[in-house]
C-alpha cells in the first residue's frame, strides 16, 4: 500500500508562478499513491480558478473517496474566518484534503486553533523576517479499509509558530491515538528534525527524506 503527503501550494508552479489545472492532475498521476494527504489546498479560490482541488486531485489519482477539510473560509493571508466542524459553505475555502483509493469507514477532523500572537517568518527571496499572524489549522483522519484490516491515515499542516506547532501536534496525536491502529500521520508539521519527539511518545517516524525546497531539498 502506497501512502503520500504533498503540500500543493494551491497548485502553483514555481517555474512560472501559474496555477494550471493539468499540472495538478499530472502531479496526482506521478505520485500514484493509494492514500494521499494534501496540504495548502484551495476550494473556490480565485487564484486557482475556483477549483475544488481535492476533488480534482482525487479524480486524477483514481481515488473514489476523498474529503476537503477547510481550516478557514475566505482568502488566506487576507480576509478570513476560522472554519467550524460541520460547516460546508459555498464560500472560498482553504485547508487540507485526503484522497483514498480504498474505502473509508469514517472521517474525523481535529480542530487546532491558531497561535494568539504574530511570529517572524523568513519568506523565500527576502532578507528580513516578516511578522505574520497565524491561521487556524486542523487534522483530518480517515479510517481506511486496508489490505490487512482497518488502518487510520491522517494529514495535517501545523502552525509555523515554534512551540505552538508542538502543542498542536500533541493535541492531534492524542486524538489520533483513540482511532483504530495502526495510525499513520502524513503532513507538513513545520517541526524541524526530531523535535517532534518532545510530544510524540509512542510514535515513530516512518521516513527521513528531504522534500523542501523542491529543486534541491534540504529539509
Amino acid at each position: 500500500m502506497r501512502l503520500a503527503s504533498v503540500n500543493l501550494l494551491h497548485g502553483r508552479s514555481l517555474s512560472d508562478g501559474q496555477v494550471v489545472p493539468s499540472r495538478l492532475a499530472d502531479a496526482a498521476r506521478l505520485i500514484d499513491a493509494d492514500v494521499v494527504g494534501l496540504q495548502e489546498v484551495d476550494r473556490g479560490q480565485d487564484r486557482s480558478g475556483g477549483a475544488d482541488q481535492t476533488a480534482a486531485f482525487a479524480a486524477s489519482a483514481g481515488a473514489a473517496h476523498w474529503r476537503f477539510a477547510p481550516a478557514l473560509w475566505g482568502t488566506p493571508g487576507a480576509s478570513w474566518r476560522a472554519a467550524l466542524d460541520g460547516e460546508d459553505l459555498a464560500e472560498p475555502g482553504y485547508g487540507i484534503g485526503l484522497v483514498s483509493r480504498r474505502p473509508v469507514q469514517r472521517w474525523v477532523t481535529v480542530r487546532l486553533p491558531a497561535a494568539p500572537v504574530r511570529s517572524p517568518v523568513l519568506i523565500p527571496g527576502t532578507r528580513r523576517p516578516v511578522w505574520l499572524a497565524d491561521e487556524p489549522r486542523l487534522g483530518l483522519a480517515a479510517v481506511v479499509d486496508g489490505p490487512h484490516g482497518p488502518l487510520t491515515v491522517a494529514t495535517t499542516h501545523l502552525s509555523f509558530v515554534p512551540g505552538w506547532n508542538l502543542r498542536q501536534l500533541r493535541r492531534l496525536l492524542r486524538a489520533l491515538s483513540s482511532l483504530p491502529q495502526p495510525v499513520v500521520l502524513l503532513g507538513d508539521l513545520n517541526v524541524p528534525g526530531a523535535t517532534h519527539r518532545v510530544v510524540s511518545h509512542g510514535w515513530r517516524p516512518l521516513a527521513r527524506v528531504a522534500t523542501y525546497p523542491s529543486v534541491r531539498p534540504r529539509v
Partner: peptide
C-alpha cells in the same frame, strides 16, 4: 510521517511534481 502501531515500511521516495515548492513524500508499507 509518524506512525503508531505496527507499520512495515518497504520503500520511501521524494517525488518532484510540476507544482509546489515541496516534493511529495511517498512511503510504501507492507
Amino acid at each position: 510521517m509518524l506512525a503508531l502501531g505496527e507499520v512495515r515500511v518497504t520503500g520511501t521516495e521524494a517525488i518532484a511534481t510540476p507544482i509546489s515548492d515541496h516534493r511529495a513524500l511517498v512511503v510504501d508499507i507492507g
